[in-house]
Design a binder for these strands. Structure first.
Lengths: 193, 193, 193, 193
DNA sequence: TATGAATGAGGCTTCATTCAT
DNA sequence: AATGAATGAAGCCTCATTCAT
């Protein structure tokens, strides 16, 4: 399906080189098609971008939703750690989605700044709920010291954001993993005591 | 004068709209000059960008260096907290520099990916040393529990990166500051106990 | 059915927006069909245009021919006036045909300038004969003063052309009709005295 | 001056081939310049067209205004006849202006239908006043029979419009002139008697 | 009878860049 | 120190047209 190939290639190139840095001709070429063929499937560059963006967001939100599933049997600590690991895996297995989402979360093209901000706030709310539930579970378990939930959630979200940043920032996986583990250990340490 | 104004406007626009999304004509227009005037001061677009980039990095490194100064009189906790606050102030007082640095740290234009990576690793090393010194001080003070320094440094760097991300991500300053304080409190909690 | 609908829509759009200003896709869309369907009925854009053009000319010539019929019982003055009225009615009842004919009489697309000129000269000859017959009748009746027939024919044709122009030029029907009547009255006045 | 050459060539080509039928590249080529040079002088195709249009209208209105001048010494008949002749001369001496004005009076590109209609109504008012003055003069002279001025004005404007149409319609000058003279003679005949 | 998919040609426009002044 | 004039390259997009189905 040309239409899907276009979406995939577009996601990768938009993620790597940005909206303005990606020519439709490049996308077409990689798909093995001439540029005007794009217009058979998408209205224009913006439409292609928006389609890709929506899919990326859906996929990312799906990932967030999955974070909350299948964790019932784990204790809070393992669940939280697993979220970090899953985020890491998500980045590794879906480099195009990840790069795309990160890029346009921070640097949306001006023509859809608002749309994008709303979409990301939505994801943020989803994620916050997932974390909250786990924190509450930890407190009930007794593994997390009784204290303000908001406080614990904020710190964990910061940890996630920091890991996100570092994943794209540090080239070496080893280094990244060490930092990730150390940061989580410190978090858990603070959460318990 | 014109040369500097060009640099300033270029930094802002490159930061806001990206390298490909910024036309030299826009830069010239904001400065109140015609496009060819740029070529009197800079070889070409890349040269202007590189000049701006170097200045941004110097400025950013200066900021990092200043973090280590004037902290002798403070205890470790206050010093570390002050770093977070200073980072926040730096972003607020120098939005153009900050946005530029963040953008090109994560998404360098392909023609200078390597150069930029080196520059950022350099800054990272600088920053790591500053943190390390403070951690060691804290251990010597006895306010930080004796444990692996690397461990504490990694977690603090993660905290800084997370805060960086959130600063640009969250629109509201209040929300950002709450999250920042909560995350630091958790960090310090973990560091002591 | 589709073939005829295509012809109708094409006539209207070619008349309103010109040959170059009308895309085959627009025509197809209005007919409720995809563009390639056009090629099942017509060889290409030119062919569609020519088909439309021929029909418009036939229809217009039919109108001219009808002008000479059913007028036997009327006197010359009424017959001539009736021609003006019929022209007016023709424009009102067949706005698409009229606009099309006017547009391509004055501004033929370059690829068929000659063809079109011939077609219009043919219509002109037809019309001239009709007028001539009525003038002669008028002179025989004694209602038109005896004088050069050519002279009277030329003036009447000018009257017709002027009315044509004004019909498309003036937006208001009332204004147009007043002008038409005044112009004819003056013509008849000159013809008699 | 490239800018003026562009205007001249644009007027001719827009007049001959229509707005959609004229490529900027053609205009540029005839001027001896590459297409993007047009954008140094005009914002875009519409702007070039509008500039040409405004100039054509100004020029045409100037022509109309001049019709009323230098006619004091002539009697009404000669003045009116002279208007027809001058219109003829105007068409002959300024074929580009004339064709352009005629084309866009009848078939404005959709994006400026309203603007153009207003402009032409303005010209129409100007012209009507000129004719009116001459008719009144003729009645005062006693050369025109006393009757409704409106009636005489309408008929003369019809004569002018008819002549306009025929000028562009009939290829042969001789034929055109014969028709013109015959039509005017008939008009004057009707006006006097 | 009609469409889905695709393309070549070409149009409008922007942009970095040059060069004479 | 800066601009007016111009261009080559390239980008987005439209359109007539084709062809397999």
């Amino acid at each position: 399906m040309t239409k899907n190939k276009l979406k995939e290639v577009a996601m990768r190139l938009f993620g790597e080189k940005g909206y303005d840095g990606t020519a439709l001709s490049e996308i077409a070429k990689e798909v093995g098609v001439k540029t005007p063929a794009i217009y058979f499937f998408y209205e224009n560059k913006e439409d292609l971008f928006m389609t890709v963006f929506k899919e990326a967001m859906e996929f990312y939100n799906l990932f967030i939703q999955e974070l909350s599933e299948d964790q019932a049997e784990l204790n809070a600590k393992d669940s939280l750690y697993r979220i970090l690991i899953r985020q890491h895996h998500f980045y590794q297995k879906n480099p195009e989605y990840s790069l795309f989402v990160l890029r346009y979360m921070l640097f949306p093209p001006s023509f859809l700044k608002e749309t994008i901000e709303k979409a990301f706030l939505h994801s943020d709310v989803l994620l916050t709920k997932v974390i909250e539930a786990l924190i509450v579970q930890g407190i009930q378990e007794g593994t997390i010291r009784e204290q303000s939930v908001e406080f614990l959630v904020d710190a964990f979200l910061n940890l996630l954001d920091g890991s996100c940043m570092q994943y794209f920032y540090y080239p070496s996986t080893e280094l990244y993993e060490r930092k990730l583990n150390n940061a989580f250990a410190m978090y858990w340490n603070g959460a318990c005591s």
